[in-house]
Design a binder for these strands. Sequence first.
DNA 1: ACATAATTGCACGTTGTGTTCAATAACTTA
DNA 2: TAAGTTATTGAACACAACGTGCAATTATGT
Lengths: 189, 189
Amino acid sequence: MDRRQQKTQQAIFKAFDRLLEKKRFEDISIKDIAEEANIGRSTFYAHFETKADLMDAVCSEIFTHVLSITIPTEQSHDFSTSETSLKNRLIHILHHLKDNGSTTKGVFASGDGQLFLHYFGEYLKEMFNPYVSTIYIQVPDDYVLNHMVTGFAATVNWWLQGGFSPTPEMVADYFMQVNGFVTITKISQ
Amino acid sequence: MDRRQQKTQQAIFKAFDRLLEKKRFEDISIKDIAEEANIGRSTFYAHFETKADLMDAVCSEIFTHVLSITIPTEQSHDFSTSETSLKNRLIHILHHLKDNGSTTKGVFASGDGQLFLHYFGEYLKEMFNPYVSTIYIQVPDDYVLNHMVTGFAATVNWWLQGGFSPTPEMVADYFMQVNGFVTITKISQ
DNA sequence: ACATAATTGCACGTTGTGTTCAATAACTTA
DNA sequence: TAAGTTATTGAACACAACGTGCAATTATGT
């Protein structure tokens, strides 16, 4: 690939990241990005069709990273460790999201994790699917699955809004407890 | 209030509702609304400053309705009935949202319940707050609260995307179970 | 060095926003 | 019903952003 293309691509991504720290996605214009990246506006269009296209690329980049980190972990099918395996995968994801803090914030800022959900949805569904039917028998599987996927997104959102203060391990623990992956929950009173 | 103002207000609201059935909020222009409402574009600006302003009004209208329906129910402080009281309030809300189906869809379509959350957030928080600390002791209260509020929004979203097919009673039941308001949940395996 | 390909800036048409204003129509109330 | 008030209308204006096209320039790979 042409060196020039790489440069401008990176410049665009970095500029976008920088802008996402200041503004919401909706309030960033292509002119803004071009100026921040120090490139011509028409150059932007040579790389991306729309602003959403750029966001797509950013999201799928994060997605690819998270995927590469967490998928290899899945090797044990031992039931006794299945929960800890899930928890570990969640911890990995949370670590990665914390490391990419500003980008994560940017992705979430544009519609409360809508895009995050769009890109991670399928992956998260696959991840949570094996556990669904074992937890709440009187509730439709697809409801439980949706509950977990959106719940995880809400968890990440809560976490980053609090400045990523609890550790990934703690956050994963909260999520596990709240979703019934524990021996003792509570009762009515 | 001048009869003319009432007319145009209603015309705008109805037009907005009609448009929300066809398009997403983001894709509706003020010109669209004016045309659909059969009023001059400048007349729109005499009533609302921006498109978001209109959405605000719509949301707070729904909010007011839900509030008036569910608040009076709260009179019992008996612990044994507190869960059913919560459940009943949820059922009331769900009924109301189903009755205003198209508007509900419109509100949710613009950012996966972002606006819904913004307007109902405080109310829902108040509603769920008394139950929070009694359920998951090892998890921060604000996390649990956030989990319930966003979880309820996700529930409504799941429900409307499935065409409101289960009854409000069933949906409320799913929500209650999944959030730990039950005697027997499940265990690891 | 030369052919190739990316970048640039400028121009153009389009769409939407928000404001202003004078003319017209509808309303209230006295 | 007549008079004064107030809402509506449509047209005009300035502005910002989008997306496209193109010729000139510049950097790249070989």
